[in-house]
Design a binder for these strands. Structure first.
Lengths: 204, 204
DNA sequence: TATAATTAACTGAACGATCAGTTAATTATT
DNA sequence: AATAATTAACTGATCGTTCAGTTAATTATA
């Protein structure tokens, strides 16, 4: 006697299970049937809610993007003393919480698909635009308080974003054993250190 | 009356067409049948040569990795004056030739698959190890000639690699119109400039 | 040099499994 | 009784794979 759930609950649930299936089986391996099996529902129910796989995929992308976006919304440093805000920002960016919010395999799957789907590519581009704006706003605050200096905050934001995405890549492929927490922590500290120098000692 | 080609010619040809198919259809969309159709051969011929799709995939990864590796082999700066070698290195790393050698969509497809295939993951890790060694060797030469200074060449190599991979990411997703050459060129110059400062003015 | 033996390149048809998607029926909730 | 949730049964296409057989190129033999 399975309880019936309404669309508001069931739809996000399906998306989440789709995401989990992708993590285990990859994008190509994540069929509607497998998602349904994992949820113990009928495959047709998924198509009933999403119409087709394209829509399910787009919903997944929204889910992943929203997960990232929530990190920015959560980030509140207004109450901190200006001199502490730089450290807070750097630590947030290279924190476990940030880069583990969405599994790196999940990210890559979505990014790979985006090359063949302009809608998805656009959504990702939007996410980065929002993130860039966020960084520029933080930089401007720090500049106004004479804590850092730079010629072009937009340009500097681009460099920091490059380093952030590079770090995600690095942790996944270059660090020998990704279970070695010390190595990862040391690497993150390295990156924070470089970013700090970049923000405080360069005049561009 | 199709001419018969021997394995030495046909096998790499199949791998290249597999790669091209992935670019157009994505990894999940690149079936053996589609590759065969593109080549105007019978699907069975592909299996005749590779046995199964897994082997074809591994051959593709080798092909992509070899393409990258060839860039390092090609890189010769021994004849240059020591003071020119830093610029040569930076320009090579952020050159069109380097980052367009393998299409970014192709790279992402391979990287995404690697999360579910330890063999592929290992091959990619090996590639990065080789690249790191290459960078460290170049850095040591520059240090010996008093052109740059740093505490830990290995650590610096990691940072530069992070920036390189981040750049690939950035160009794909963050720059508004990826056909705008000027914007890309300006961005590459930015990154070269940051890398140069990092190598010349930091004591770590 | 001609021919037979062997190897390598290649094709065709068929396999069971799985895919996304359609249509219709059933069941629960309000 | 009306509506929404869920399942059942099914379709046609495509997937990777197997296997038996054909055709061409190469090598050995007479």
């Amino acid at each position: 006697m399975k309880k019936r759930l309404n669309a508001d609950i069931q739809k996000p649930k399906i998306v989440k299970h789709f995401y989990k299936t992708i993590l285990g089986q990859g994008f190509e391996g994540a069929s509607i049937a497998k998602v349904a099996k994992r949820m113990n529902i009928h495959p047709s129910l998924i198509l009933h809610y999403f119409g087709n796989k394209e829509n399910l995929t787009l919903a997944l992308v929204d889910y992943v993007i929203e997960a990232y976006n929530s990190l920015l919304k959560k980030y509140k440093a207004k109450d901190l003393a200006p001199e502490d805000r730089l450290e807070r920002l750097l630590e947030a960016i290279w924190s476990r919480e940030y880069y583990e919010k969405i599994n790196v395999a999940g990210s890559f799957a979505v990014l790979a698909v985006s090359f063949r789907n302009e809608k998805i590519h656009g959504k990702i581009r939007d996410l980065y635009r929002i993130f860039k704006k966020f960084l520029v706003r933080e930089f401007r605050f720090l500049i106004d308080n004479n804590l850092i200096c730079m010629d072009d905050p937009e340009q500097t934001a681009e460099i920091i974003m490059t380093m952030i995405e590079g770090s995600r890549h690095f942790r996944a492929f270059i660090i020998d054993d990704d279970r070695d927490d010390d190595q990862v922590r040391r690497y993150n500290q390295e990156m924070i250190s470089v970013a700090r120098k970049l923000l405080t000692s360069f005049s561009s």
